[in-house]
Write a protein that binds this DNA or RNA. Structure first.
Length: 543
DNA sequence: ACTACCGTTGTACAC
DNA sequence: CGTGTACAACGGTAG
């Protein structure tokens, strides 16, 4: 009996039907199409502690992003259903297992997927490519998470573009050729294979509970999915003047309603195409008399993203200080108490605490709020390694993204790209520029809500009588400051100066590159337990 | 080798 | 209120 011939589209990111070139190609084939998504345990919450390296390399989503991801899958499934297909979700120990199942059941003509630049993905995909090669099966993949083809643009750079400007030079000179035009949306797909045989497909899209998130998760203000993404994009694009005028530094980090587009969560998981947005913004620009220019404009933001993706794809150890040739080597402290207080919004600095609490609740904070919090944790006040902050951000951000999170933390800690380390964000002066009455502090640090404007960003300076009147005594109802801002700033600046004098950047050759999976072998117990708990329920094969 | 210039998004204070 | 300047001063790039 010969095996049925099919194609497989593998969704990982690119959780969309629009501007998805490999999916479009698959949709034009005459063979049945199996659209799959594989949830491997590296995505799951309770493996996080054991997989620190994988978290660093981008495999894991935090709870907020995970919920968002599930909504993307639901939306995708709905859209596929309306085309008489469906998304087939696999809960499996690793993707190889799934493809072995598929190859056993079917004669796969081609495997289609969008390329992914993260180290975790590179390794995963290399294994799968290998498996298909051994099986003499064709694979079709393309870049789509970025504006350009990251392999192709390599040839345009003689050396690493270490400043935005040199990256932009290439974009400026070759933009028309290297920025890929969006392709048409998929409107129909071939039917599913008639018989799914013994494939161990999860029934529908797993809920947070089914996957093992312990308690009910408070939803962020943002809902995942391609449908929501396109809606949001169109809504923003409708205000043409706003689009044309947009300059990032002129937007406020202190408003309750987001002052920017908040499309980043959709870009991060690929339920919105950056190419489509770039193209649509271009159309708006053309319709207006004048428009903002990079680096501040919306296009400028996309080019920053592109630059960081390119760097993260080509620079070794991009996610850490050690062995990262771009990253200044700094003798950061490791003070667990500081890190935890920063993490939980308990530093005693209302502006910082409000930012961190908002981040945890809502999964999105303004770019400059991220700057403020990141500067505070690293070179500004607490002198902690940026990697710690990056990991904590990754746990809560809806737009958590390997390339962008790493790059921005290096930027803010003045470890790379940016070196004016003497420019330190104040916890009072900075937010005051945007909002003297501190709406954000009053909302996210409600214990401080009754303080008068004069003391809202510096409640410790309020006389006891004022504190009592506000119903909030500092040190009792709200924490006292964990450092003295001025002293810490001065000390840290001096340390930063010394680090710059040493001029040491990471040496990739001096770092023993940990092989992925090593840790897994060291801790097989945890993994097996996880597998049973999670996956034993619906499936029978393992048991 | 040297110099001049530039860099998306700071603060504090003088006027 | 805005505008200008000192603060203390970096690395990358182009010439």
């Amino acid at each position: 009996m010969s095996k049925p011939k099919i194609n497989v589209y593998w969704f990982r990111k690119a959780l969309r039907l629009h501007d998805n070139a490999p999916l479009l190609e698959a949709s034009k084939s005459k063979h049945p199409l199996l659209p799959i998504f594989i949830l491997d345990p590296l995505f799951l919450p309770d493996t996080r502690a054991d997989y620190d390296d994988e978290l660093a390399s981008g495999a894991l989503a935090g709870e907020n992003q995970f919920q968002f991801l599930m909504e993307c899958l639901q939306d995708l499934n709905e859209n596929l259903k309306s085309m008489n297909s469906q998304l087939c979700v696999f809960l499996a120990q690793n993707p190889e297992e799934v493809f072995e199942q598929i190859l056993k059941e079917f004669d796969v003509d081609s495997l289609y997927y969008e390329k992914d630049s993260e180290p975790y993905a590179n390794e995963r995909d290399a294994k799968i490519e290998n498996l298909f090669k051994e099986n003499s099966t064709k694979t079709v993949s393309a870049w789509g998470q970025t504006l350009t083809d990251l392999d192709e643009i390599k040839s345009h750079f003689k050396k690493t573009p270490k400043v935005y400007r040199s990256f932009m030079k290439v974009m400026g000179n070759h933009g028309d050729e290297i920025i890929v035009k969006p392709c048409e949306a998929v409107k129909s797909v071939p039917c599913l294979p008639k018989n799914l045989g013994n494939l161990q497909i999860f029934d529908g899209i797993p809920t947070m509970k089914e996957i093992g998130f312990p308690k009910k998760h408070e939803h962020t203000p943002f809902f995942g999915g391609e449908t929501a993404a396109l809606e949001r994009m169109e809504k923003k694009l409708a205000d043409k003047k706003w689009i044309a005028k947009f300059e990032k530094p002129k937007t406020s980090p202190a408003t309750l309603e987001a002052s920017t587009t908040v499309l980043s969560p959709y870009f991060a998981l690929g339920c919105l195409s950056v190419r489509l947005f770039h193209f649509k913004v271009q159309k708006v620009y053309e319709s207006q008399k004048s428009h903002a220019k990079p680096p501040m404009s919306l296009h400028g933001q996309l080019y920053f993203r592109e630059w960081f993706y390119y760097l993260s794809y080509t620079i070794p150890n991009f996610h850490q200080m050690k062995g990262n040739p771009l990253c200044l080597q700094v003798d950061w402290d490791h003070n667990k108490e500081f890190i935890e207080k920063w993490h939980h919004g308990q530093t005693g600095f209302p502006w910082i605490d409000a930012i961190m609490r908002k981040l945890r609740q809502e999964g999105w904070i303004h770019h400059l709020a991220r700057h403020s919090a990141a500067c505070f944790l690293t070179r500004g006040q607490l002198w902690q390694n940026w990697e710690e902050g990056k990991k904590i951000f990754a746990m809560y951000l809806l737009d958590g993204d390997y390339a962008l999170n790493s790059a921005n933390w290096m930027w803010l800690s003045a470890s790379a790209f940016f070196n004016s380390y003497y420019r330190v964000y104040g916890t009072e002066s900075f937010p005051k520029k945007y909002d003297k009455s501190a709406k954000m502090v009053r909302k996210y640090c409600p214990e401080l809500a009754k303080f008068p404007d004069k003391y809202i960003y510096c409640p410790w300076e309020a006389p006891k009588s004022v504190q009592k009147m506000a119903g909030c005594v500092i040190g009792e109802d709200y924490p006292d400051r964990i450092v003295d801002e001025k002293t810490a700033k001065q000390e840290n600046m001096a340390k930063m100066k010394a680090a710059y004098k040493r001029k040491i950047r990471g040496n990739p050759n001096s770092v023993e590159l940990k092989k992925r999976g090593e840790k897994r072998k060291e801790a097989p117990k945890v993994e097996r337990k996880t597998k049973k708990k999670r996956f034993g329920k619906k499936k029978s094969k393992a048991d």
